[in-house]
C-alpha cells in the first residue's frame, strides 16, 4: 500500500488529568480513508485519547498533527477551520437536550455555512433520513430510544460531510442487529464521504467488520502495547493480552448474522 497517505499523526503523546497519568508515549499514524479503532480495557483512557484528538484537552506532552499541522499550536481561526472538517459523536450522547433533533443537526450547518433556513431544513431532513430517523425532526432527544439517540448523534456528526469522523462507542448499549446496522452505516459514510474514521469500541464484531487499523491501549503499563490491523493482531500479536482480547469474539466477521 504505497499510496497510503498519512492523515493524523500522534507524536509521543502523554495524557494526564492533573497529576493523574492516563497514558504516555503514544505514537501512531492514522492514514487517509482508514477505519482506525482505539481498543483497550475499560478505563484505560480511550475516551481520553479521543478527546485529546479532537482538541478538547491539551496534551501533557507531545503533539497531534493533522496533515502535518498541530491543532494546539494553530491560531484560533485555523482551529475553527480544522474543526469544520470533523464530525464527532460522544460516549454519553452529547446531543443538546434542549433542542429538537432537527435543531441539533442544523447547528453545525448554521455555525459553519451561510445556508438559508429552508436549505438547512432540507439538508437536515436528508441527514436524519440517512440514519433512519426521517420524520423525527421535531422530537427531543429524551423522546427517542437510546439507539435512536446514537443515530441522531451520527446525523449531527455528518451534517457537514466531514473529512474525519470520531466516534466514541457508537454501538454501546445497542442490540446486535442495530449495532450491525450502525456499523454498516459507518462504513457506508466512510466510503461515500471518503472520510477517515477514528472509532473507540469494545465490540469485537464491529472491530473485525470495519477496522483497517488499530491501536491497543493498556491500563497497566499506561501505554500502547500494539498497533496494526486487528485481524492480524489476533493471530500474531506478541502480547497475550491483545490476543486474548481479540479472541474472545470467535472467528473474524463472526458477528450477528
Amino acid at each position: 500500500m504505497s499510496e497510503r497517505r498519512m492523515h493524523i499523526h500522534v507524536d509521543q503523546l502523554t495524557m494526564a488529568y492533573g497529576s493523574n497519568l492516563i497514558q504516555q508515549d503514544l505514537d501512531f499514524d492514522v492514514y487517509r480513508g482508514d477505519v482506525f479503532v482505539i481498543m483497550g480495557g475499560s478505563g484505560c483512557g480511550k475516551s481520553t485519547l479521543l478527546k485529546h484528538m479532537i482538541g478538547l484537552y491539551p496534551p501533557a506532552k507531545g503533539e497531534i498533527l493533522y496533515d502535518g499541522k498541530s491543532f494546539n499550536r494553530a491560531s484560533e481561526q485555523e482551529q475553527f477551520e480544522m474543526r469544520r472538517g470533523w464530525g464527532i459523536t460522544y460516549q454519553t450522547g452529547g446531543l443538546f437536550s434542549a433542542m429538537t433533533l432537527a435543531q441539533n443537526t442544523a447547528l453545525p450547518l448554521q455555525q459553519y455555512t451561510a445556508l438559508g433556513a429552508a436549505e438547512i431544513d432540507d439538508i437536515v431532513a436528508y441527514k436524519l433520513a440517512l440514519v433512519g430517523l426521517g420524520g423525527y425532526q421535531d422530537y427531543y432527544p429524551s423522546e427517542i430510544s437510546g439507539g435512536m439517540q446514537k443515530r441522531a448523534g451520527l446525523a449531527r456528526a455528518i451534517a457537514l460531510d466531514p473529512e474525519i469522523l470520531f466516534f466514541d462507542e457508537p454501538s454501546a448499549g445497542l442490540d446486535p442487529i442495530s449495532s450491525q446496522l450502525l456499523d454498516e452505516l459507518i462504513l457506508e459514510m466512510q466510503e461515500s464521504l471518503g472520510a477517515t474514521v477514528v472509532i473507540v469500541t469494545h465490540e469485537l464484531a464491529s472491530i473485525f467488520a470495519i477496522a483497517s487499523n488499530s491501536v491497543f491501549l493498556d491500563a497497566e503499563t499506561k501505554t500502547m502495547i500494539d498497533y496494526g490491523d486487528p485481524k492480524i493482531l489476533r493471530q500474531q500479536s506478541e502480547h497475550d493480552k491483545v490476543r486474548k482480547f481479540l479472541a474472545r469474539g470467535g472467528t473474524p466477521g463472526g458477528g450477528p448474522a
Binding site: 475553527f80 474543526r83 469544520r84 470533523w86 464527532i88 454519553t92 452529547g94 443538546f96
Partner: peptide, 17 residues
Amino acid sequence: GTMQTREEIDAIVTLGI
C-alpha cells in the same frame, strides 16, 4: 452542569462555538 455531564458542552466546543 447537566450539559457538562452529558458531554453537551464538549460538543459545543468542538463545533467551534
